[in-house]
Amino acid sequence: MIQHKLIEACRENDRRAQLKLYNKYCEGMYYVALRFMNDTMEAEDAMQEAFIKAFQKLHQFNGEVSFGAWLKRIVINKCRDKLKAKKLELISINEQVLGTVDEQEDWQVDEGIGVDEVKCKIENLPEKYKYPLMLYLIEGYDHEEIGEILNITQVASRTLVHRGKKKLQDELKTLRNGTGY
């Protein structure tokens, strides 16, 4: 209930309340932005701009989801906007050509490969696979949410995640085999 009072105070433009809310979420939202922007300064800019937008749109927050989830979506959308401005557009997929892809639920990675290695390999994937895969594997979004965030269909999300997983798995096999294990 304390957070509810804090949000209400922020709605009334209480600067101290806004600072408290910012301090509570800034670190987590910075790391979300950093996963997209790959540059500390750009990630910080995206996070700051997302907070400004969140405070401006706080009247739209209705509590259906947690404040953190609502803010995270704003951060991700701000990162996407910044990437689009840099001409890093995602490739649209033609549903009729691709069709539906069944997901591999038994997808596994060698035991000796760590999270940092996986994240590093995701960073090296083509843009069209990188963001859907990050949202799916790291952020935990489902295909409907990924579709909304990236403005693509659920079928396209499934396809991009599936193909991204295959590419990632190949990269991780190369990593393991290339290092003499």
Rank of each mutant, 00 (worst) to 15 (best):
M1V: 04
I2V: 06
Q3K: 08
Q3C: 03
H4S: 10
L6S: 06
I7S: 03
A9T: 03
N13A: 09
R15S: 12
R16V: 13
R16Q: 13
R16L: 11
A17H: 11
Q18A: 05
Y22F: 15
Y25F: 14
C26D: 08
M29S: 10
M29I: 05
R35M: 04
M37R: 02
M37E: 03
N38L: 07
M41C: 04
E44M: 00
D45W: 03
A46F: 02
Q48F: 01
Q48K: 07
Q48C: 05
F51Y: 04
F51G: 00
K53G: 02
A54I: 03
Q56W: 07
Q56R: 10
L58P: 03
Q60W: 09
N62Y: 08
N62C: 10
G63L: 11
G63C: 11
S66A: 13
G68K: 15
W70T: 02
W70E: 05
W70G: 02
L71H: 07
L71K: 06
L71N: 05
K72E: 11
K72Y: 03
R73A: 07
V75M: 01
I76P: 04
N77K: 01
C79K: 01
C79H: 01
C79R: 00
R80W: 06
R80H: 07
D81Y: 07
K82H: 10
K82W: 03
L83K: 08
K87I: 07
E89D: 14
E89T: 07
L90G: 07
I91G: 00
I91C: 04
I91E: 13
N94D: 15
E95Y: 11
E95I: 06
L98A: 02
G99Y: 05
G99W: 04
E103M: 15
Q104D: 14
E105Q: 12
D106F: 14
W107A: 12
W107E: 11
D110T: 09
D110L: 09
E111C: 06
I113K: 08
G114K: 14
G114Y: 12
D116I: 10
E117C: 05
V118N: 08
K119H: 09
K119P: 00
C120A: 12
L125Q: 02
L125A: 00
L125N: 00
P126H: 02
P126L: 00
E127D: 04
K128W: 02
K130P: 01
K130R: 15
Y131R: 11
Y131Q: 10
Y131I: 06
P132K: 13
M134P: 00
Y136K: 15
L137N: 15
I138Q: 13
G140Y: 13
G140E: 14
D142V: 09
E144Y: 06
E145K: 15
E145F: 05
G147F: 15
G147V: 09
G147D: 14
E148A: 12
I149P: 10
N151P: 04
N151M: 13
I152T: 11
T153H: 13
T153G: 14
Q154M: 09
V155A: 13
R158M: 13
T159Q: 07
L160R: 08
V161W: 06
H162M: 03
R163V: 01
K165V: 06
K167D: 10
K167R: 13
L168W: 10
D170C: 06
E171T: 00
K173V: 13
T174N: 14
R176T: 03
R176H: 05
N177S: 12
N177W: 06
G178P: 02
G178Y: 01
T179R: 15
T179N: 11
T179I: 01
Y181M: 02
